[in-house]
Each structure stands twice: as structure tokens, then as C-alpha cells.
Computed example of a mutant assay.
Amino acid sequence: MTIQPKNLSDPVVRDFVTAVNQHDRDAFMALLTPDATMADDGTDRDLDDWIDREIFSSNGHMEVDKESDGGHALLARYRNDTWGEMRTRWRFDVDDNGRIRRFETGQA
């Protein structure tokens, strides 16, 4: 059963999923620390390149099936125009100011 973004536990993760699904790059970037990092399938990636390619230029969309670790870990069906749909895991490291300093994703 899908968890609607508005029902996700952590407000920053909730806003992250909403920004992805609404293709709102400005809202997405506002959630990240200036020095934010990310990894895909265990490999660190260039953040700007990755989000443009995997989310914003390819119509990325997340449907969350499960959350854990206080909302900082998600199991989701992620799809975009490049890869189609796949089952993915997401983990978020949120700082004390409520901004994401790192996120990791990969196939689940």
C-alpha cells in the first residue's frame, strides 16, 4: 500500500518526495545543505548532474511503500523516463536545521 507524501513522518523527507513528484527543482534544492552529497547504488555521484539526469529532465516520480528509522529510510517505487520503474531504497541524513546533508538511493 502506497504512503501518500503528506503522510510521511519526517517533514523534510515529506517535502523531498513532494518536490520530486512535482518536478520542483527550486523546492528540492532548498531542502539540501549547501555542501550536500549523495550516492546511487553505493557510489558517490555529482549531485547536480545526478538530480538533473535522474529526476528533473527525466520526470522522476516516487511512490513510497514503506518508511522506517523515523522517516529517514524509505522503500519506494521510483520511475523516470530513462529507466522505467524500479524498487528503490532511500536513506536521508538530516541536519539539526532540518536540511538534508546527504541522501543515498539504490535498487532494493
Rank of each mutant, 00 (worst) to 15 (best):
E67G: 04
D15I: 01
M86R: 14
V64Y: 02
G71K: 06
T33D: 07
V12A: 12
D81R: 09
V64G: 02
G98H: 06
G60I: 04
S9L: 14
E67L: 05
S58T: 12
R25G: 00
E54N: 10
M1P: 12
D24Q: 01
L74P: 04
H23W: 05
V20F: 02
D46E: 15
T105Y: 00
L8W: 02
R91A: 13
G106I: 09
P11S: 11
V17E: 00
D93S: 14
P5Y: 05
H72G: 08
L47K: 04
S9F: 04
V64L: 07
V12M: 05
R14Q: 14
L47S: 05
D35V: 13
A39Y: 05
R101D: 11
D48W: 00
D44L: 09
A39W: 04
D69P: 04
G106R: 04
A27Y: 00
I3N: 06
D49I: 13
R79P: 01
M62D: 03
R25L: 03
R102Y: 09
H61W: 07
D52L: 07
W83N: 15
D26Q: 14
I100P: 00
H72I: 09
L75P: 01
F28S: 05
G71M: 06
T18W: 01
L32E: 03
Q22D: 12
T105F: 03
F28I: 05
R89P: 03
A108Q: 08
N59R: 15
D96M: 11
R91Y: 12
Q4T: 14
N59F: 11
R25N: 01
H72A: 13
I55H: 03
S58R: 05
N7V: 08
T18Q: 09
G84I: 07
H61R: 12
V64W: 04
P34I: 11
G106L: 09
G71F: 02
S57K: 09
R101P: 05
K6G: 06
G70M: 10
M1D: 12
N97P: 04
S68N: 10
P11W: 02
R91L: 13
D44M: 11
T33N: 07
R101Q: 14
G70C: 10
D95K: 06
A27S: 12
G84K: 08
Q107H: 13
T2D: 11
N21G: 03
D96Q: 14
N7I: 08
Q4C: 08
T37K: 15
D40W: 13
E63W: 08
G84H: 10
P5K: 08
D24H: 00
V17K: 01
I55S: 00
S57E: 13
M62T: 01
A73R: 13
F92W: 05
T82L: 15
A27C: 07
